[in-house]
Nucleic acid binder design. Sequence first.
DNA 1: ACTGCCGGGAA
DNA 2: TTCCCGGCAGT
Length: 469
Amino acid sequence: MTSKRLLEQPRAGDSTREPVTGKAMHEGAFRNFGKEISPNGHYFTSTREMHYIHKKFACGREEDEQSSGGVLKYGCTAHHLILSGIRLQDQTHPEALSPVREPGHLLPSPVTPHPHASSIIPVPHDRRPSGHADKEVMAATVLTTLSTSPLVLNPSSSASDLASKGWKESLSASYSSSTSGNWSWDASDQSVPSTPSPPLSNDAGKSFLLSSQSDDNNEDTESTHFLFEDPIPRKRKNSMKVMFKCLWKNCEKVLSTSSGIQRHIRTVHLGRNGDSDYSDGEEDFYYSEIEVNMDTLSEGLSNLTPTSPTTSGPAPVFPVLTGDVSRSEPARMIHTPLSQSAPSALCHIRTDHAYQATTPVSIPSMPSEPPHSEDRISVSWQSPPVIYKGLPGPMTQIRTVSIGEKRQPVNHTTVSKAHTNNTSASKATTGTRKPRGEAKKCRKVYGMEKRDLWCTACRWKKACQRFTD
DNA sequence: ACTGCCGGGAA
DNA sequence: TTCCCGGCAGT
Ligand SMILES: [Zn+2]
């Protein structure tokens, strides 16, 4: 065996040299003793130790090199921020469920202001008793929520109150909503084919950005869960935001409150008297409720060519919410996670020692530079799983395939969304053996001697992790 | 011939 | 899990 090694080390063999091997040491034979000085001046005591030393050494260095750690940290932080932003509201109290979607509407009843909810979410103060329609819409929302997930709420809570009330009202009103969704209401058509729940999307909503595709999928799965009556359903996400969109011909107004939209319609389109809260219900026909999924929104953003640094533009047109919105709905909106889309989003994994390190690390696309730590906090909630090196396509030069195969399994943590995105591309890796990166790898760079300088992977004869392509 | 590294195996 | 290597494939 040692002989083998020698083969690999043609010139190293002579005197003392030769990269140590655990075995070699046992064999005693060559290694004079424990001590040695490597060509580059390192001083080793024993084989094992040498490795350790090296390891540490390498770690430090490499981390510096790509400072993957730094970036990761940032990523994580951001991640948490966002998540907690959502999660906090999302779970915690049962009541909190509703508030997420439309705090203003779900807890509107001037009668019972929820202490909890309000403690979590800043309730807009300009909230006024406004028209019934307001409540109706709200009720409908609640209703559907409830209907899809029975038992979610404790019947004794005031929420139920609200719900039942809402129900009644919605009945009296004539939106028909059967338990399994399927709404019919004005212009709304079911642009969401297989979705049982009624995300009131209509053409209007469509224009409201959101490539609803993935969105729908999500929704689909979600509601599926509901149908299965999960005892603790929906603990995640639902960063849904309900908005109201004016359907008037060329009016694209979107407001966050129904009262707002009603007022808008009344005054602007119906030419009614502005200030009065009076509503004859006619406005109802001119606006519709739409749900905006923050998650999807941002996800969509990150999706667009995550790995390609070339696409730098701010990109997607964010629904220009009218000023009104921001006014009546203070800080709450998480809107801006989209500030990301940072070109360098994350392309990930890499850490020397991935064979030792457990978690995937995301790094900025730039090949190897000490990415200054700040480097725009690329928000990457969804962290690891998502993006995966877009197109292994034959071209696109720069990133040749390479990392693909091996890594993929490593990081695909929880999230099950198999990624609709480029399925076709994925196959590429399997068949052929991969183009072979172009960059010089540790082996070449350092040579057989100085093997100890190689990255671990290289030493293991695995794909180099220090010089990826 | 050499390099890169997959797949597999021993410890 | 860590470490190593046979052997294939690209250069
Ligand atoms: Zn390497």
